[in-house]
Simulated scan of single mutants.
Amino acid sequence: MSRAPKSLKHCEFRFYEELNDFLPPALRKVSFRHAFSGSPTVKDRIQALGVPHTEVDLILVDGVSVDFQHHLHGGERVAVYPTFERFDLAELNRLRPAPLRHPCFVLDVHLGRLARYLRLLGLDTLYRNDWPDEELAQVALAEHRILLTRDVGLLKRNAVTHGAFLRAIMPREQLLEVLERFDLWRQLRLFSRCARCNGAIEAVTRASVAAETPPRVFAYQRHFYRCQSCRKLYWEGKHCDRLRHWLEPLLREHGLSWPESEQAPRD
């Protein structure tokens, strides 16, 4: 004897602003009916529709603010919002965790160039090109790091509490997206971290590195630096001048200036 099919329930969803980027074109910026069975959580349904929970900051069910564990029973109207910058939501259930006091990051395997840029700007950034998704999620959780990725599925993992989907494809555009989203402009400490391993860079005396520096470099360079973790040696170079040429106008837009005392290391 065959079982009778379960009767489906329906609710109405509406996603706002950039959350629409995760939806099929036909469902963007409109209200639509969504079918489900049982009494799933609203988080389950939101992620089933393609939107990772890390991008959601407010859910209203029939006009009432709810958390991710709210169960749907059919007939509800669900409005889903990203982060608000201009409205006072003190009386509502904001769903994103409180911002980390000292933002630090872990990046998925496809963001190696972005990891280098973030480190050059002094931002604590972990990256490996062989990290499996499960380990990435656990590192983000255990070390209170923000997981940056273009993999929506990775952000849907329950272990991920702080994360961000990067919409930009090119590394420099991704860098600007991260700096803007997390308001990091005043936290930059240029050339204070190793681009290779994320360790701290400190100045060393010229005499102490004479034996390991190429003679032509040693002849014209006066400032040298060493990573305190991997011991990689740096000195000032033209590629850092190029970074300054690109970044300095952006700093000025935010009321900041390039630190005059900053020495730009080169590997």
Rank of each mutant, 00 (worst) to 15 (best):
A4S: 15
S7Y: 08
S7M: 14
L8V: 13
K9D: 02
C11F: 12
F15G: 06
Y16P: 04
E18N: 10
D21A: 15
L23P: 08
P25W: 04
V30G: 03
S31A: 15
H34L: 07
A35E: 13
F36M: 09
G38H: 07
P40G: 02
T41H: 08
V42D: 10
D44S: 13
R45M: 10
I46K: 03
Q47M: 15
A48S: 09
G50A: 13
V51M: 09
V51C: 08
E55R: 11
V56P: 09
V61P: 04
V61E: 04
D62H: 05
D62S: 07
G63S: 10
S65C: 07
V66F: 00
F68Y: 14
H70I: 02
H71D: 00
R77P: 05
V78E: 11
F84W: 14
F84S: 14
L89H: 09
R94D: 01
R96T: 14
P97L: 06
C104K: 14
V106Y: 08
L111F: 08
G112S: 01
G112D: 10
L114P: 03
R116A: 04
Y117G: 04
Y117D: 02
R119C: 03
L120Y: 07
L121D: 07
L121R: 12
G122Y: 10
R128S: 15
N129R: 15
N129I: 15
E134Q: 15
E134K: 15
E135A: 15
A137Q: 12
E143L: 11
R145N: 05
R145G: 10
I146T: 13
I146S: 01
L147H: 07
D151N: 14
D151T: 10
G153L: 10
L155P: 13
N158G: 11
V160S: 08
T161D: 02
L166M: 12
L166Q: 09
R167S: 03
I169E: 13
P171F: 04
R172D: 03
E173G: 00
E177I: 04
E180W: 01
R181F: 09
R181C: 01
R181L: 08
W185T: 02
S192V: 03
R193Q: 09
A195G: 14
C197A: 06
A200S: 07
A200K: 06
E202T: 11
A203G: 03
A203K: 09
V204I: 13
A207P: 00
A210W: 01
P215H: 04
F218G: 02
Y220K: 14
Y220D: 11
Q221C: 11
R222V: 06
F224L: 06
F224D: 05
S229M: 02
L233F: 01
Y234K: 00
C240T: 03
C240V: 00
D241A: 08
R242T: 06
R242L: 03
H245C: 00
W246Y: 05
E248K: 00
E248F: 00
E248M: 00
L250I: 05
L251M: 12
R252W: 00
R252E: 04
W258I: 05
P259V: 06
E260K: 13
S261R: 06
P265L: 12
